[in-house]
Write a protein that binds this DNA or RNA. Sequence first.
DNA 1: GAGGAATTTTTCCGATACGAAAATTAATTG
DNA 2: CAATTAATTTTCGTATCGGAAAAATTCCTC
Lengths: 208, 208
Amino acid sequence: MPPRNRALARPDPTEMADSQRAEFGSRLKELRLARGWTLAQLAERSGLAVSTISKAERGLMSLTYDRMLSLARGIGVDMAEFFTAEGAVFAPGSFAVAPKGVFQKQETRNYVYEMLFPEIRNKAMVPMMGTLKAHDLMDFDDFVRHPGQEFLLVLEGAVTVFAEGKAPVLLRQGDSLYFDSSRGHLYASAGAVDARILVVCTEAEGGA
Amino acid sequence: MPPRNRALARPDPTEMADSQRAEFGSRLKELRLARGWTLAQLAERSGLAVSTISKAERGLMSLTYDRMLSLARGIGVDMAEFFTAEGAVFAPGSFAVAPKGVFQKQETRNYVYEMLFPEIRNKAMVPMMGTLKAHDLMDFDDFVRHPGQEFLLVLEGAVTVFAEGKAPVLLRQGDSLYFDSSRGHLYASAGAVDARILVVCTEAEGGA
DNA sequence: GAGGAATTTTTCCGATACGAAAATTAATTG
DNA sequence: CAATTAATTTTCGTATCGGAAAAATTCCTC
């Protein structure tokens, strides 16, 4: 029996990567066809083999960094171009009001969030109201971490912010915070009363 | 180590890719260290081997798409994060606190805004605190209009929002608003006392 | 400075990407 | 429709990636 990794092997092996690969391939093909090029033409420009591009476009194989870079050069785009989501458009002219307290509750392990404006899809920002119970028992198994940036404002009470690689920070009513959401973070009420916070994130999280 | 300087007229794809690889590796290492992680910790989170990450960080090898995706997931960033030009970009791992009232005042014709976190460049969101004087004389010569999206929360008092093509909306303390900033808009205090608002815009834009 | 633990680098071999050419499919022409 | 060409896909050998473990380095603690 092959000495496979322990039961810790949590991060998914291939399943999820395959679908992502297919998406990358589609994007690549899209860029090629948009220029009216054949595989051979792109092969000529990028310097790699026709067969390689063919397989990559269909998600049959996982290109190395070097080949992806060659392709980007050949097509004439920046590497980031391959990964920027294209669809998902915010409805132009949107205008919505949310009266106080009329929110959609959304409970997570440690917080109670209420997402504002759930009816507006694909917002560039996701504003949420949160309540942190006083003396809440926190599960410190892991930080929250996600792509994008985050803004926090303490509306009532006091909050202790735990951020990876940073000393805990105490925020009082009116204090605010701005940070890279990919840095692990956790919020907890710091006072004897419930804390009320406003959080605005970029990048709708529902994605994954 | 002897320099392998060869007077080749044609671009040497190998060397060019190598330098890019090194840059990618540096960025990867930067993201890891910003979180205070060891190779083993990132290996655990991403699901790939310590040795692989080590080689990748030093540009010794060219990761495949699959492994790069695993790394992005483990770190908690988008793939594009690896390739965004390092110059004009939001500093990865940013973390800044703004105590209440310590803001930089910025007066416009109709409002007094205080931009939060001016020291963080290229934020995806621009949070501002605003004060609307009671019974303020408004210049109704034109609406404000700019690219991006806008979120507004009334912290104190009441605000009347005038939006192009919409009837005026009265917002009380705790009410909020989300809309396309390209739709003309204006804010005015609606009560007998000064109103205090939080505004978060996307797209950092010079001027107001 | 001598252990000793933690972290990184190197080694080695199995797994996979990659390219040249063959095979297949699609498009074009007479 | 057959024949020819263009375009894409498949095959297969080689180069490189990628992971487990060993070796080396750095970091502590006494």
